[in-house]
Design a protein around this nucleic acid. Sequence first.
DNA 1: CTGCCTGCAAAGCGTTTGCAGTTCA
DNA 2: TGAACTGCAAACGCTTTGCAGGCAG
Lengths: 145, 145
Amino acid sequence: MGVSVTVDQIVGVVRSHGKRVTQPKRAVAQVLIDSEGHLTAEEISLRVVTHLDDVSPSTVYRILEEFEELGLCEHTHTGHGAAVYHLVGGGHAHVTCNVCGGTWQVPTEYFSNLATRLRGTLGFELNPHHVALAGLCHNCATRSL
Amino acid sequence: MGVSVTVDQIVGVVRSHGKRVTQPKRAVAQVLIDSEGHLTAEEISLRVVTHLDDVSPSTVYRILEEFEELGLCEHTHTGHGAAVYHLVGGGHAHVTCNVCGGTWQVPTEYFSNLATRLRGTLGFELNPHHVALAGLCHNCATRSL
DNA sequence: CTGCCTGCAAAGCGTTTGCAGTTCA
DNA sequence: TGAACTGCAAACGCTTTGCAGGCAG
């Protein structure tokens, strides 16, 4: 599943910026590609094991930080627990359920009305990607009735 | 400034739910009323000193948690640093600047279009209050040009 | 006087950082 | 070879928790 990007494309960007291409970086790139997004740094660490022996959490954080600086990746704060990381280019933001903790993708265009109003009144340029909106997902909403 | 609520009203709710009314609770309530909202737990601790000798951070957290359970108060994750607390009833959500860290209030109605679309497609019930949206404030946006 | 509430200190979680050793170019 | 990268462990900021003592009811 996931995004139409290859590991070679990602490491190509890394190389073109004078950064080194290493095994851990390839493995993290592969995990991000294979995922649906919404992975925490710890989940990435765990999944990397299938591609490589092991990668320490601090290395995962440093690689994700580098990917973000290169515009390859973004992280989102969900409001409960660790931030989730995903490749850019999905054109989607996130919503998180306050009860079950699940996260869903939302098309960025859903935010256009809000973005326009924020720009008009506050001069504020919204970035819908950095923080996940909170609420109640369908399952938890119906269950709580 | 602040909300049209009194300390007596707040402690009234506390008492009516069988909880005890204490000096620290009164002081935290007063700080929340006097504030514009957007206070972190630490800021609340510091401001409480003007009303009372001192209140430990853990007590502030426990009081805020109780106020939230009673529907008096809410906290918002801004995506950088500590959560901010504010009394409910403002009818506003928050946006935070990724650069300067400032927080601004936004009328809840700005979210109505987004909320409708989320409800229609995902069955998701948005709560705009729990997480602050991120972006670039007017000052930082113009400065970065 | 009883038990909820507080303060302190320690632990917890997610994340960052310093440093010695390893690996890519 | 040399600089960039990694792993480990310790530190960090924010928040929660355990426990002994204090205060509201």
